[in-house]
Design a protein around this nucleic acid. Structure first.
Length: 154
DNA sequence: GCCAACGTTGGC
DNA sequence: GCCAACGTTGGC
């Protein structure tokens, strides 16, 4: 089983919004970056766990954990001309963008803030992609060691 | 709102 | 295939 971190702007889709859904499950759509797409399409497997990260907000940080409940399949929002995330270059025969389905596993009582994560940037989290300068990747792998360490910060 | 960093686009 | 211009991300 692999571990991941997935970013979302809470103003667009927050962990509370996920918790409010009937089955606490949704397609993680709208990713339009090839590196992230490749992970959604090729690497994320049913049963994997991912941190749900809130970005571009008052308190950036990890808000909880989701489980991947369906591996990669084409992003329908890219095929819908009326949708904000429509991409005319993506077609049903040759889909360009992918989603996975995620289900809420745990909502942390308190966010593990970016500040707290940064406190360990010199040691346990030295290689965490999230903390790399200029990092913009919205879906990224997390090692088991990083995952376990971050859980101790909750 | 600012700005650094980075990915993408398009002219050549 | 290069690279400047542009758009986006995301923290502050």
């Amino acid at each position: 089983m692999n571990h991941w971190l997935m970013k979302s702007e809470p103003a667009t889709f927050s962990i509370d919004a996920l918790a409010a859904l009937p089955k606490k499950t949704t397609a993680w759509d709208g990713v339009r970056n090839y590196q992230a797409r490749n992970m959604l399409r090729d690497s994320m497997k049913q049963g994997d766990l991912a941190f749900f990260y809130h970005s571009s907000c008052e308190l950036p940080g990890i808000a909880g954990i989701v489980r991947i409940v369906r591996s990669g399949y084409p992003d329908a929002t890219a095929l819908d001309a009326k949708h904000d995330h429509y991409d005319p270059a993506s077609t049903p025969a040759d889909p360009r963008w992918y989603v996975v389905d995620v289900k809420l596993e745990t909502r942390f009582k308190r966010i593990i803030t970016l500040d707290v994560l940064r406190e360990h940037a010199a040691d346990a989290l030295a290689d965490l992609i999230l903390l790399r300068r200029g990092n913009r990747l919205s879906v990224m792998p997390v090692t088991k060691a990083q995952w376990d360490f971050i859980l101790t910060l909750e």
